[in-house]
Structure formats: structure tokens, C-alpha cells
């Protein structure tokens, strides 16, 4: 077992940031740690790296207890902290060398490792620059490069793609996937898509508790069954009457008063021919569709869906 977290609890004053969470990660797994901001992801990761101490519970990394072998464990972990803190006054290479020297890497070994991560992380074109001159994407790559530098067994990456543009996100994702071939990776995110494409397993944490821990495929199956559309209809004389008609055909309707025209959020099952049905209704009642777009499931929706039993779900 690469990572083993048992009964972890962290309390700040009266506030419980993490409540009795337990999970294991096997060697070579890429696991996503998903949850909204403030769910306790960063706190858990900080405890796993030995930066914070748990109030209760235990973490083992590669068979070593974090509480007892803190220094040993830091050698085995590559950690990218939240917000990717770097020294802006340092050059990229100097920064990586500094990190390596703190890991007590020998000169030759360090040079080889720096060359390797500069190459793998695509840092070569910017390697001669000072960190303060780098774009956000290259800073993030520098952060990931430092985490990989000492060839750790376990990578812990706290929101590695936050604040990046779509191209940069794709780059970092492929970097992580590449690293995940040999290493155990735990990465956190508050975006479902993020973990869907990168991770083989997802642990969802909300309000300090684990609400789901399953393979990504299962998760996708559970969440993609239900779709939500936002519909604005024109030619509606009596919105309440229209709503009643809609309710007889679709089971979950939420009126939206965002615009000037009547609009609804309509939830449909996987196999419902929604567009067809809506078009029929429009023809029948003389409405026309002014706006129709799918709505991304929010994390809250997903939590609700995951925690409710399958019988509750409409499909």
C-alpha cells in the first residue's frame, strides 16, 4: 500500500476541517481528490506531507508513519502545495537545484535529474529565466518539475491546474498522466472534468467527510445518467399553465426567473428523447424555443446524486 489514511480528523478551534476520513491508495494508482473549496482537501494533503499534524488518526506513506518518520517520508513524496509557492527571485534551474540539494542529492545526480525534469516538463525554452518572468503555465510546470525532481514514489499535487488556460491544463494533465505510469499520484481538484480525464479513481470529499470513493468509470456512469437543460420558451401566455404541462412530461422542473421570458431547468433521464418531446409540445401549444442549452452538473448536484440511493434517481 502506497498511501494509507486511517481515521484522520483535524480540528481548528471549534471547526472540524476533516472528520474521520480513511482511504488507501495502491502503488501506481492515480487518484483524484475532489471537493468544493473548503472541503478539507488541502488540510488532508498538508497532513499527509507532514506539514500539519492530525488531531486524530494516522497516515502511512510507503509503510512509514508520517508522525514518526516525518523526514524519511518527505524524501518519498513530491509535493506541489496549493497556489504553487515559488521563489520569484530565483532562476528556474537554480530553484530546481536548491530543491534537489535540500533532498541531499549529489551533484551529478542532481544535474541529471534537473535535465530530466526540464525536458519532461517542457521547461527548456524558459529554463534560463527568473521565475518572476515566467507565465503562470510555466510557473506551474516549474512547480510540478520540483515535485518530480527527486524521483519520489508518491506525488501529492494540490490543485495542479488552477488558474491555467485550457492549453496549459491539457499540458499539465498529460504530464501528470505520464508521471502516473510509475508513481502513485494523489491530486486534488474542485472540477469534476479534471479528475475524470486524469484519474483512475475518485475520492469525493465534502465538508470534511468522504462522500464517495469509487473508480472514475463508476462515477461517470452515476452522474451522466441525468441531464439538466435550461429552456426559455417564447409564445407563452400563461407561464404557470405551461409549467403544469411541462411537469406532466418531465419529472423535475425548476422555474428560473433569471431572464425576462419564462425559463425552466428541466432534468431528464438518460434515455428520454428530450428534444423530440419538447419540439412536440411546442408544436402542440404554439410555443417556440428561444434558448436551449445543457447545464453542467455542479459538484453539489453530483454529491446529491451520489449520496442519494439509485431508486431516487429519475431515469
Amino acid at each position: 500500500m502506497s498511501i494509507s489514511v486511517t481515521g484522520l480528523t483535524k480540528t481548528y478551534g471549534n471547526q472540524q476541517a476533516v472528520r474521520n476520513i480513511s482511504f488507501d491508495v495502491e502503488q501506481g494508482e492515480v487518484v483524484g481528490f475532489l471537493g468544493p473549496n473548503g472541503a478539507g482537501k488541502s488540510t488532508t494533503m498538508k497532513i499527509m506531507t507532514g506539514y500539519l499534524a492530525p488531531t486524530k488518526g494516522e497516515v502511512e506513506i510507503c509503510g512509514y508513519s508520517v508522525a514518526e518518520e516525518s523526514t524519511n517520508i518527505r524524501r518519498k513524496i513530491g509535493y506541489l502545495p496549493e497556489h504553487n509557492p515559488l521563489y520569484p527571485d530565483m532562476g528556474v534551474i537554480d530553484f530546481l537545484k536548491f530543491s534537489g540539494s535540500l533532498h541531499r542529492m549529489g551533484k551529478k545526480e542532481l544535474k541529471r535529474a534537473v535535465d530530466y525534469v526540464v525536458e519532461t516538463c517542457g521547461l527548456a525554452p524558459e529554463a534560463h529565466k527568473n521565475i518572476r518572468e515566467l507565465s503562470k503555465g510555466y510557473r506551474q510546470r516549474t512547480g510540478v518539475a520540483h515535485a518530480l525532481l527527486h524521483n519520489p514514489d508518491v506525488l501529492i499535487l494540490d490543485e495542479p491546474t488552477t488558474g491555467l488556460d485550457p492549453n496549459q491544463i491539457v499540458d499539465i494533465r498529460s504530464l501528470i498522466k505520464e508521471a502516473g505510469r510509475e508513481k502513485t499520484v494523489l491530486l486534488s481538484s474542485h472540477i469534476l472534468k479534471e479528475v475524470e480525464v486524469t484519474c483512475s479513481r475518485v475520492i469525493i470529499i465534502n465538508d470534511g467527510e468522504i462522500v464517495a470513493d469509487e473508480p472514475t468509470e463508476t462515477l461517470i456512469r452515476k452522474t451522466s445518467g441525468v441531464k439538466t437543460y435550461f429552456v426559455v420558451l417564447g409564445g407563452v401566455d400563461n407561464p404557470q399553465h405551461t409549467e403544469q404541462i411541462l411537469e406532466t412530461h418531465f419529472s423535475k422542473i425548476n422555474p428560473s426567473d433569471a431572464g425576462t421570458k419564462p425559463g425552466w431547468h428541466i432534468e431528464t433521464g438518460e434515455n428520454t428523447p428530450f428534444q423530440q418531446k419538447l419540439a412536440d409540445l411546442c408544436r402542440e401549444h404554439g410555443w417556440h424555443v428561444e434558448e436551449l442549452r445543457p447545464v453542467e452538473n455542479s459538484l453539489e448536484d453530483i454529491f446529491r446524486k451520489l449520496t442519494s440511493t439509485s431508486g431516487d434517481r429519475e431515469s
Partner: peptide, 14 residues
Amino acid sequence: RSGTLEWLITHPVT
């Protein structure tokens, strides 16, 4: 302030 202390301390450094 900049968070680099966490970066530093999560190296094998006391």
C-alpha cells in the same frame, strides 16, 4: 507570507 515556508518544510529539512 508567500507560502514558500510550506514548500521548504515539506523537504526533508527540520
